[in-house]
Design a protein around this nucleic acid. Structure first.
Lengths: 184, 184
DNA sequence: ATTTTATAATTACATATGTTATATAACATT
DNA sequence: AATGTTATATAACATATGTAATTATAAAAT
């Protein structure tokens, strides 16, 4: 048999990269195969069908997102850095952002869920002390800021907008301050 | 010749309706023709190609949006009603919202543009008086609220979320209050 | 009544993509 | 070395969609 030259990880890596560069829709059997210099056949030996390949790419994208955000978190200003990182993701990884957050969100049924889903309990505790506010109020700041951040992020991802990083930080800071102040 | 039974307006109306019900991607020559009980031929006599049909559907969607929002504006609480109406649009006209606001926004280059684009100058004047704040600060409230609103709207449109209208109004009110308070 | 012509239906062709069937070649086993 | 096994390539088929060519039909013109 011919040497085994293709491997599943390489396929996923390439498909993820294509998603980053040209969007999720650019991922199809022929395009991935062509990019890798192979035929489509090997793809089907590693994945039952394109649907499952896409699901795995989605998973890789989510991992990428988590690492992206995590690497940018700052212990001192967890909430602010979380917000800034998310917007940066939307700005610099637009195609991944679209895939993960503008297609179909995992079941989100109340704003409370947002907190449960994204909330970092450690950050909450820190803030309870730092801001001298009860947990309930911190939680609210959290939720409001996430929603606001999502607004900025979406506008950047869909608007082809050209807003500077400085302006982004500024508006996020303003929002954070406003939400904290509202609780005091 | 056979009676002229198809007309351009009917085509657009049906395509818009299909967009509302099943999403913009569901609009193609055959699907529209089938829905109307005709062949695809008449479509091509009214539109050079599907691309232009889609552009006109986009225009109709925008008209629909404007009427939707406009009909829900309340002179007393212009900003708040604007926010609530936009979120309602995302919730109840999800497919139109996706088409208009999650695909490609018209060139948006700074947050100032948001105000220029959506801002209602009359509302601003009213608020300058009502809140006793200078125009610059009202403008900022405006921008912040639009961004926040867009966050809520997007989450509803993409999340298959099931957030009650009451909860929506509540969180929007909170945001508005916070942004106003921040300026005082 | 016949012819013309506008309108729509049918058919056909092109391309993109998913997927499967077949062929080929390299390696393993005997 | 012959045979079997398997990874990959190639080719083919299926479906969806855009679009153009051809045909059918009914209203209008003559």
């Amino acid at each position: 048999m011919p040497k085994q030259t293709v491997d599943k990880n390489q396929i996923l890596k390439n498909a993820l990269q294509m998603t980053r560069e040209n969007g999720f829709e650019s991922v199809n059997a022929r395009s991935v195969a062509k990019r890798m210099g192979y035929s489509v056949q090997p793809i089907y030996s590693y994945f039952n069908n394109m649907e499952t390949l896409r699901q795995e790419v989605y998973g890789e994208a989510m991992k990428f997102y988590n690492e992206f955000i995590y690497s940018r978190l700052d212990g001192d200003g967890l909430l602010e850095s979380m917000a800034v990182a998310n917007v940066a993701f939307a700005k610099y990884e637009t195609n991944l952002f679209k895939l993960l957050f503008l297609q179909k969100l995992n079941g989100l049924n109340s704003f409370n869920d947002i907190y449960e889903w994204m909330g970092d309990k450690n950050a909450t505790k820190q803030l309870v002390i730092k801001l001298a506010l009860p947990e309930e109020k911190i939680k609210e700041v959290y939720i409001m800021l996430i929603v606001f951040t999502h607004g900025v992020a979406t506008m950047l991802a869909t608007g082809g907008a050209n807003i500077s990083d400085e302006e982004i930080v500024e508006i996020l800071k303003k929002a954070y301050t406003a939400f904290v102040k509202a609780q005091q």
